[in-house]
Computed example of a mutant assay.
Amino acid sequence: MAQPEPSDDQARRPGLIQRRRQKIAAEIARNRRGEHTVPTWVLALILVVILGAWITLIVAS
């Protein structure tokens, strides 16, 4: 099934799906080059776990 030709506006501005694909491809390329980064949510989760363990130790003693 053929897809309709994009209008000039759509050709200049990538859609949400295309931007997402480009972002994922860029991340994969960075990871292959060795530019690994830890996502912010992982750092926040680690901080919450450490603080929770510390507070638990203080309250338990």
Rank of each mutant, 00 (worst) to 15 (best):
I24S: 04
L45H: 09
A2Y: 14
L43S: 09
H36P: 07
I55S: 14
R12P: 00
P4H: 12
R19C: 00
Q18C: 03
R21T: 13
Q3I: 03
W41Y: 15
T40I: 10
V49K: 02
Q3Y: 10
I55L: 11
A2H: 02
L16A: 02
G15C: 02
R19G: 02
A53N: 01
L57W: 00
L43W: 03
G15Y: 05
I50V: 15
E27C: 08
P6F: 15
P39W: 01
S7T: 15
W41H: 09
T56W: 09
I24H: 10
D9Q: 05
I50W: 10
V38E: 11
V42N: 04
Q10I: 01
A29S: 14
A29F: 11
A26N: 00
T40K: 11
A2T: 05
L43T: 06
V42T: 15
E35G: 11
L16P: 12
T40W: 08
Q22H: 13
T56V: 04
A44G: 13
D9K: 08
A53C: 04
G15P: 00
R33E: 06
A26Q: 10
L51N: 10
A11H: 12
P4E: 14
A2C: 01
T40L: 05
A53I: 15
D9A: 15
I28L: 13
A53Q: 07
V48S: 04
I55N: 09
A44V: 15
G52F: 04
R32K: 14
R13H: 08
A26R: 11
A44I: 12
Q10P: 00
D8Y: 08
I24Q: 07
R30H: 06
L47T: 13
P39R: 14
A53T: 13
L43K: 14
R12E: 06
Q18F: 12
V49E: 03
L16K: 07
L16I: 03
A11L: 15
V42Q: 14
E35W: 01
R32E: 09
R20M: 15
T56C: 05
I28M: 07
I46M: 00
L47S: 07
I50F: 00
E5Y: 08
T40C: 06
M1G: 04
D9H: 06
S61F: 03
I58R: 15
V42G: 07
D8W: 06
Q22D: 10
A25K: 15
Q3G: 04
D9C: 09
V59Y: 02
S61H: 05
V42M: 04
G34D: 03
H36A: 09
A2G: 04
I58V: 14
W54C: 07
D8L: 13
R13L: 11
A11C: 02
D9N: 12
H36E: 03
A25F: 01
A44T: 09
L16V: 13
Q10M: 10
V42C: 13
R30E: 10
R33A: 03
T40M: 09
V48E: 00
L45R: 05
A29G: 02
E27V: 10
R19I: 01
R13T: 10
N31A: 09
D9M: 08
V59I: 15
A29C: 02
D9V: 06
A44K: 00
